[in-house]
Each structure stands twice: as C-alpha cells, then as structure tokens.
Design a protein around this nucleic acid. Structure first.
Lengths: 394, 394
DNA sequence: TGGCTTATTTTCCGCTGTCAATAAAAGAAA
DNA sequence: TTTCTTTTATTGACAGCGGAAAATAAGCCA
C-alpha cells in the first residue's frame, strides 16, 4: 500500500529501464556500453532504456570528459541528474526528529532537527509536518520538485503497509504513519525500520553497492543489523530481522531489557557501557561520550569495558557471518565515535569466532554522521519512487 | 559448470514453463486455473506451458477425480508423472555411502548403502560408481531413464563448480567430484553440501513448500542449518553459510574442535553428548544411542546432559530467528531419535531467547530417516535437471 | 581524405505472455 | 430433450520487450 496524493511518477516502463537507471545511479557515470555489461543487457537495450529517462530529465549526458582511450569513437557518459528531483528523509527518535533534504543521488542538501518533547504520535506527526514544510519551502530554491518522503523509525515497522507496529522507544503501537503523513503533506510516503533504511542507503549509495550479500551493523544506543541476501533487504516473515542486539553471547552476562542475559546490546549498547563504566570506575557517568572520555584518559578498568563491548560485537558479527556468509560487513553508528577503543577487539573476536571461510568476510567501518539515519529514510523514498510505479522490483 | 555426457534435457523453454512445472511439482495435482493463480500467470499461459510438458511425459492429466463443485465444466487435474524419470541421490559420509533411487517427485524407490573403509576420494568414487551402477541396473525394471545424479557431502562444497573445497570428515580438499563422477557414470552430476541439499528437498517436497523464508536445522553428529531467504537457498559468499553449529552460545562452555568455546555443536553434537555423558555418569558410553538409553533409564545426571543440549540448540535457533525472521524452522536429523529428551528444552529456550515477534516463528520437527540425506541429494539433482538447461532460475 | 577503431543507434525479428472471445463439459431448468 | 448457466480450458490476435546484426557516428592517424 502506498500513499500518494499528487505524483510525478518515474517512467520505469520496463524492467530494463529500472535496471539501467539503478545501475547508473549506483555506479556513477557510465558509458552505455559499460552500463549494458553491468546490467547484463545488450547495448541496444540500453539506448532504448536511456532515451525516455533522458527525455524526462532523470538522466543526463556528460560531454564525455576524463581520460579516454585515444582510439575509436569517444564514449558518452550517462549519469543521473541529481538535481532533477528532491526527497525528504526523516528519522524519528525518542529525543528528536531529524530531517534531511536530498537530491536524487541521495546527497544531502539541507538538514534540520527538532527536539521531541511529547512522544505521542500526534505530536511527533506535527514535528514531521513542520520540518517537511520547512524543507519544501527551502527546496524551492533548488528548482526541483520534492517527490517523496521517507520516514525511519526504530522497532517493528511494516513497510508494505506503512504502519509502525511497535516502537519501544516511542511507545507506539500500530500507528498508520504513512497514511497520516501522506494526508498531511500530500507527498508519497514510505515508512521503514531505521536500520533497514540505512541498509538500503548502503546498498544503493554506499559500501554495499554491487554486493548481493552483505550486512550493516549499527553500534550506538542499540545494536542493530540490516541484512541483504540475494540482493534484497531481509525483512523477516514477522517483521523482525537483524536483531543482532539480542543475540545472546554469554548466558552469564548482564540482564538485558529483553529479559535474557548476555545479549550483545546488554554488553555493548550505550546504556550498558555507561552503567558498567559507573560500576568499574566508581565515577558518575551519564552518557556514552563521558564513558569514552574516561577510557581515553586511561582510567583504570575503563578500557576493559570497551574491550568487553568490542568482544561482544565481534562475536555477534561472527554469528551473522557464520549463518549467512556475507561478502562484507559494514559497521557503523554513533557508537563509532569510540571506535578506536574497541575496533581491535571487534576484529579479533570476529576472526576467532568466524568459522572457516566465513572469516574471509570483509569487515569495514564507516563513520555515521547524525543525518545519516535520515538519509537512509530518503534512500528508502528514492527506492520506492524508482521501483514502485508500474514495475515492482526487489 | 555442469558435467553431462548424454542427456535428455527438460523442455523448460521459457520461465513460465519452469514455473508452472515446479508449482505443480510442489503443490500436487492442480487444475490449470489453480496453477495459474499460484504462479501468478494467466490461464492461457498455463495451457501453453503445460502442452509441451504433457507431450514430453513429464506432466500427466488425471481424469479429474475427487469432490468437485457440482457446477460448471469439471476441472482437469494436472500432476507430475513421477514415473517418467528417475534420479539417484548419494550421501557420502566418513563411514558409509548411502544411495537412493527416486522418481521425479523425489519419492524413494530403492535404497542401498556401502560402508566406507578408505576415505580417499578415489576409493569413495569407486563406491559411488558401484552403487550408481547397481541402482541403474535395477532402474531398468521401472521403465524410466535415470536422468541425473546428486551427491551430498558435508563441508565446504562449491555447487556451481561441482567441487568439494574442503570436507573435514572425509579429509578432502578441492576434489572435482562432479567432473569425476560424471566421467565415470555418464550422468549429469550435481554436488552440493549435505545440509543445503536437504534444504532443497524440504523447499520443494517437504515442510518448506510455499515458504519463501525458512530454516532447516539438523541435529546429529554435527549441528547444521540450511537457510532459505527470498525463496532461495543461501550459499554464502565464501561457501560458508548456516553454520549454526558454530554459533557460540556460552563463552565458558566446552572447547569445540573449531577452537572456540561453547559452540552449539560442542554442547549438543553427538560427540559432545557422549563425552559429557561419560563424565557425568562415569559409565562407558561410546555412541549417541547409548547416551540416550542412559537418559531414558533415568540414570542420575543423564537427563541434564540432554537438557543442556536442548537449551543450546534452542538458543541457536533463536539466534537464527532473531537474525532472519524465518516463517518456519524445521528441526530434523538423526539426533531426533532422542528428541523426547530435549524437545521441551529446545522450545523453552527458543521461546525465551527469541526477540519479540521472532517468537511467532513456527518451530516444527520432522523425523529424518537415514536415506533422507541421500534423498536431499536427489532433490538437488532434480532441481538442477529442471532449472538448468536453457532457463536458469533461483 | 581515406582507413581504423570503438560507441551508439537503427532496424528488424523472435518470443512470451495477455486479452478477449470461444469451445467444452457438465448439471439445472424448462 | 433441449436450452441455460456456470465454470474451465483453449485459441488466435496482439503488444511489447529485448536481442542480433548491420548501419552510422565520431574521433585519431596517416
């Protein structure tokens, strides 16, 4: 179910058109020949697919450019015209609403945030509408229409229906967010789980480009994981997937809010680190940054807290690698601010716990600015814009 | 790479033909209309797809049959003619080679086993050839040709290349098994990992029919897991996937042969149970059946060994469910002989450790006769027969 | 200017699956 | 018995997608 009011739609008349567009979107400017090769189509098909996209302005032709072989007809590079369309991505947390305006290439043009004082759906809805309104007003200056809105929320989100089934941080249950916001803003709205949205962003615009099997692990208040298998984001039959935070790595570990002991999140989540840091150092520690500061200062025992956290995360990642054998794991999240404190432990425990060839998985890290979550939401909106209309795709 | 010599091939000229055939294969006799609905095609397409398959004898028409609505033209049921073609499935273990002859519907017609005295590839190859020869001779009586051979081996197997990369139990490395056996037997040969092959069998002919996301967990000497995500078996970018046996559930647990502590297999594998049973009861226990007997007799401490095993398995399954959110988990394996001893603990610890809606996953058990592994290999051969030729499929 | 090489476009062409109409096979109604 | 009704299966025309091959374009180099 999609919620649209007006709507410029994407001319994805055929699978080939979708495919060529996403290929060019993800792999930067390409010659038609190269695009054909990557998409597994004939050059003729590319010419045909590109034409309507050029006409509609979604693609543009660069008068070639860089170093080209000195022989033969020069190639014409085809690229996505990012400025052709704009999208808004919104991340809703219990504390604030973050919104970004991106172009079609998912580059952030503007960012805004608004604190959340009342977590009730209605109040949050107002904030979202306000930020959206503000960004749309500013978008005028870019001379491109805003064609979609993505909203990322943590918890159990049914993207297909646009409903937030349950979000613990917001204390929401069965909020038909897409419909509500679509009615208010008149934009096509996509609602997705925050980690899945971030995963889509990596798949289309980040370190997951070109990979059919990879995982994104986010470290921060919670520990989350987005999975891409067979080229598609895993959603889970019951809306739950990627709950690496609640993989139990130590039955004797600390109690987790989920009721079990030794979940990764109960060892390496921000709250766990903070409370453990208080215990170990005896000092008042309120937020993650303070905990990291203590460790950086070399306070006795502080580094060990991060070591344990890194160890838990590494084992969680090894579990993911053992079970589905991704080509790459991308570690990201606000928690990466303290990455130097546990990087080594993550990698060591991953290597130790990964079974056989699973250890060949490429474990990378990527910094995650605060707007990235909102950008993920925008990526989901872009994806929906491109793939929805006539020809659905995975 | 496929290795074929002669070869009757499947007339899968178009995607629609493949799809209709597999739909009918998995969902028993269907009317054309019903098949169209399930496959998402028009009735006209079904008529056209069915015709060549009927002509080639792979499908047959039942003169309707059962209770039909009393109104309208009676439907003609279309079903797969299992007797049209035969396949051989072989499971190779360190102790014996098991071979079955199945029909196109993967029903076992005959089974044979041969002990392995020499694990060298060459010796095993001879056994495989011998059993194959024997079954082909008997197949004459069924009046149908043997059209493929599947071989299941535990370890790291590259199905696409037909190579056993590494099999610990057999101590094989980079054995180009498919090519070797194809040369010897003249049959098209598929080689796959044993658990994946079993998973294919469940997906096409078992409890996974119609599901796009499920897992098969095998309990026995090792603890294995096959995953189906987005309707396709997960193979892993590096050939490793589904290693639930090496998911670490307790850092203080017993040492595993993989070098880590507290792997599920180090707690619940046959060897682990046997050795733990010796420790606990002080009695000589050599094989799993004896361990189970002790527990059934009520020997002090014996039941607790199974409780711990069940607990570890349950937590491993919960980990799978938390990460993928499968619709169903099918527990199977020779270890199920002792299922009454740990069933309850598996379910309890699964329920406790599954996060949120992941607990809604349907956990089933299925007995696994010794030939089932070989049947899995046959299923892989059937799958390859149907999907290979002109139109590949996932 | 002609020749060479590589990129792109054009021009068919085959093929697939849909659509809408039609045939078929009963039981029900007249 | 004949005709209707209802449901299933089939047919034949057709649209459109993507491929192959040939033609064209666009430079560089003699």
């Amino acid at each position: 179910m999609r919620f649209t009011t007006s709507a410029e739609t994407f001319p994805a008349h055929t699978p080939a058109v979708s495919q060529i567009f996403t290929t060019v979107l993800s792999h930067g400017p390409l010659t038609r020949l190269e695009a054909a090769r990557r998409a597994g189509l004939s050059p003729a098909a590319v010419t045909k697919a590109v034409r309507p996209l050029l006409a509609a302005g979604y693609l543009a032709e660069d008068a070639d450019g860089e170093a080209r072989p000195t022989l033969g007809r020069p190639a014409n590079l085809v690229r996505v015209d990012g400025g052709r369309a704009l999208f808004i991505g919104v991340k809703v947390t219990g504390d604030e609403v973050i919104a970004v305006l991106t172009d079609l290439c998912c580059r952030i043009r503007l960012a805004r945030r608004l604190p959340v004082t009342d977590r009730a759906a209605k109040a949050v809805l107002t904030s979202v509408a306000e930020l959206t309104h503000e960004l749309r007003a500013e978008a005028e200056d870019f001379g491109a229409p805003v064609l979609g809105l993505g909203i990322a929320v943590s918890g159990d989100v049914d993207r297909a229906e646009g409903v937030v089934r349950y979000s613990p941080f917001l204390d929401w249950r069965d909020v038909a967010l897409a419909e509500l916001v679509a009615t208010t803003t008149g934009l096509p709205v996509v609602v997705d789980n925050d980690v899945r949205a971030l995963t889509v962003a990596e798949q289309w615009f980040g370190a997951g480009v070109g990979l059919s099997d990879f995982a994104v692990v986010t470290v921060g208040a919670g520990i989350g994981c987005g999975l891409v298998v067979h080229g598609r984001v895993v959603a889970g039959a019951h809306g739950v997937a990627g709950e690496i935070g609640h993989v139990a790595v130590d039955p004797a570990g600390p109690l987790c809010h989920c009721g079990n002991r030794g979940c990764v999140e109960a060892i390496a989540g921000d709250a766990a680190i903070v409370s453990r840091m208080r215990e170990v150092t005896g000092r008042p520690v309120a937020v993650a940054a303070e905990a990291a500061a203590l460790a950086h200062e070399g306070v006795a025992g502080a580094r060990e807290v991060y070591a344990a956290a890194g160890d838990a995360i590494g084992r969680g990642i090894a579990t993911v690698a053992n079970l589905f054998g991704p080509e790459r794991v991308i570690i990201s999240g606000e928690g990466l601010a303290a990455y130097d404190l546990f990087a080594e432990h993550i990698l060591d425990s991953f290597t130790a716990a990964a079974f056989g060839s699973a250890a060949r998985c490429d474990v990378q890290t990527r910094p995650l600015a605060f707007e990235e979550w909102a950008r993920g939401a925008a990526a989901a909106a872009i994806q929906s814009f491109i793939t929805s209309s006539p020809t659905p795709q995975g």
